[in-house]
Amino acid sequence: MSAALSYSAVSAGYHGTPVLTHVDLTLAGGQRLALVGPNGAGKSTLIKSILGLIPVLGGAATVLGRPPAQARPLIGYVPQTDSLDADFPVTAAQVVMMGRYRRIGWWRPTRAADRRAVRAALEQVGLADRAGKHFGTLSGGQRQRVLLARALAAEPRLLLLDEPFNGVDAVSQEAILGVLRTLSADGTAVVLSTHDLAVAAELADIVCLLNGRQWAAGSPEAVLTAENLRAAYGGHAIEVGHDRTVLVEP
């Protein structure tokens, strides 16, 4: 089976100008990759390049053995909750159903299998009892879980999450982490961007440290060192105490 992600000396950016360079990554099915780095480091750019929404300007990139844009049907994408209009008149179940739209087609009615998948996805994120609630009335953490459920309903082989823990309460964070562990145990590859280095260290098999380019990639122990973080974060890194702990501002 082909790798979930295979990036070799990739650069990506907008309008022909690279904003992220030197990305070398290989991710197997079932592995979890965390993208860390300061604001504007290129985490979202990398996620969008995996989706084929921005072009790869150099190097070689394949996603699930295909050129990025062609892999979209096999990818689940979870955006940041605050990028969405909370006032939009949809229920949680309708949001999750969006994950099935490509399967259903343009105008065929939804089928029992689709409704079952929506119910199962909501159950998986612990929100089955919120199915009929208006999306905007849910808490930030619950909205994030609904968006995760939407991605699950598409039954992806690769799951991408853009800052899934931003503004999320502890209960929702635990629920999301639990789902991600279950998914990868079942063979789904997971890529997430995060500011939270503790979560990255706890969850990821591979951590990729970015700031305009890839500074380091590998196991959390090898990548999240004081030296690497200082190098990648520059002025954002602060040394505290004798154990040379590095705190990183988001």
Partner: peptide
């Protein structure tokens, strides 16, 4: 409208998500 409704609703709610879905 009937043909496009579902896709347009998705796009309206979440443009990046809709693009990501193809």
């Amino acid at each position: 409208l009937l043909i496009g409704a579902r896709a347009i609703i998705f796009r309206t709610f979440d443009p990046t998500g809709a693009a990501a879905a193809g």
